[in-house]
Computed example of a mutant assay.
Amino acid sequence: MSIAADTRPVLRLSSPTATRELYLFIAILLVGAGFTYASPYFLTPINLIQTLRAALELAIVSAGMTLVIIMGGIDVSVGGILAVTAIVIGKSYQAGLSSFLVAPIGLATGTLLGTWNGFLTTKLKVPPIIATLGSMYIFSAIMFIVIGGAWISGLPGTLSPLVNGTVLHIPASALVILVVYAACWVLLRKVPFGRHIYAIGCNETSAKLVGINVDRTKIATYALLGFLAGFAALLYVARLRNVEINIGTTVALEAIAATILGGTSIRGGVGSLLGTLLGVIFIRIIQNGLVLIGVSSLWETVIIGILLIVVLTADAIRNRNNPRV
């Protein structure tokens, strides 16, 4: 039996994501129209560009989260990975290192922390939610031990053009998101590694039977998420030129929410990068619109949590009525 033959049913299972993407796109239009009516500042070029820049780190992390959840895993520590990597980047800058050294150090840090999560879930057989929850507490402790209650501020803006610049009048942040999602799409759809991710998420036992190295694929996928979190940390520092003490606290929840809202099944085997990107846009539009109309930021998390519960409940009902063979 060939791997291609095994993965064909998995690709057919992804058809419901197209419907989810359409519904999400309509929801974005409706919510955007509502906020446009409620605030004259919502549909302005300045506000839209600022919203796009604010979505940059979440979009990049969510791309990696999509791969992990398609594989049947999850990572609730990704905010901690972003935070620890940002601290390493900040301390490296304070030590006088140039961006040519700081960038690879940051990417390597994120990749190493992601690999650690992959090691826990494969070699030590710890369930992903437990492994990454433990990592989240470890990473949070490291963050507070290193910086305490102080910010790391006054960092150089060498990489700021990646976030705040433009290329042919197109925001550079939009191009960065496009490149990341295009690369992840090619990885998922055009190379064996991506087919292995789908196959493991659909049926891990069958994936082993057709010769897929499940442990190696899992570790590589968690490492890739860590790499993207490290890249997001670089862009975070480039955008704000400081490291706050509460960095990354909501990133995991938002990335998981964007991924699930976009049609990726929490059970694995089904997923859509386009849906995830629409989920990121939807979340950031809601957050931005609520700020503009004067609603407390506490309601942002409440609304995201409610949306997540509704979508997961709908998925559970659909899976119960149409069980996976």
Score class of each variant (00 low, 15 high):
A4K: 14
D6F: 14
L13Y: 11
S14Y: 10
S15Y: 14
T17R: 09
I26T: 15
A27Y: 10
L29D: 12
L29W: 09
L30N: 14
A33K: 12
T36Q: 04
Y41H: 14
P45W: 07
N47W: 06
N47G: 08
L48G: 09
A54K: 08
E57R: 12
A59R: 02
V61Y: 02
L67Y: 07
I70W: 02
G73S: 02
I74K: 00
V76M: 02
V76D: 00
G80H: 03
L82W: 07
A86F: 15
I89G: 11
S92H: 04
G96F: 04
G96Q: 05
S98P: 10
S98Q: 14
A103E: 15
P104Q: 12
I105H: 07
I105W: 06
A108T: 12
L112K: 15
G114W: 01
W116C: 06
G118P: 08
T121C: 15
T121A: 13
P127Y: 14
I129F: 12
T132F: 02
M136F: 08
S140M: 15
I142P: 03
M143W: 11
M143P: 09
F144E: 14
V146W: 07
G149Y: 14
I152H: 07
L155Q: 09
L155N: 08
P156H: 09
G157I: 04
S160P: 00
S160H: 01
S160R: 01
G165T: 04
L168H: 12
L168C: 13
I170S: 10
P171F: 03
A172V: 05
A172L: 04
L175R: 00
L175F: 02
V176C: 13
I177C: 08
V179E: 13
V180W: 04
Y181L: 06
C184W: 07
L187Y: 09
R189Y: 13
K190M: 11
P192L: 04
H196R: 11
Y198C: 09
I200S: 00
I200H: 01
N203F: 01
E204T: 12
S206L: 13
V214C: 12
D215T: 11
T217S: 11
K218G: 06
K218Q: 12
K218L: 09
K218I: 09
T221A: 02
Y222G: 08
Y222S: 07
L228V: 04
G230F: 06
F231P: 03
F231I: 09
V243H: 06
V243P: 03
I247N: 03
G248K: 01
G248V: 06
T249S: 14
T250D: 14
V251R: 02
A252Y: 05
E254H: 05
A258P: 04
T259E: 11
T259R: 02
T259D: 13
I260E: 03
G262Y: 00
G263E: 05
S265L: 14
G268F: 00
G271M: 14
G279E: 01
N288P: 01
G294D: 12
L298C: 13
W299H: 08
E300K: 12
G305I: 11
I306C: 15
L307D: 09
V311F: 04
N319D: 15
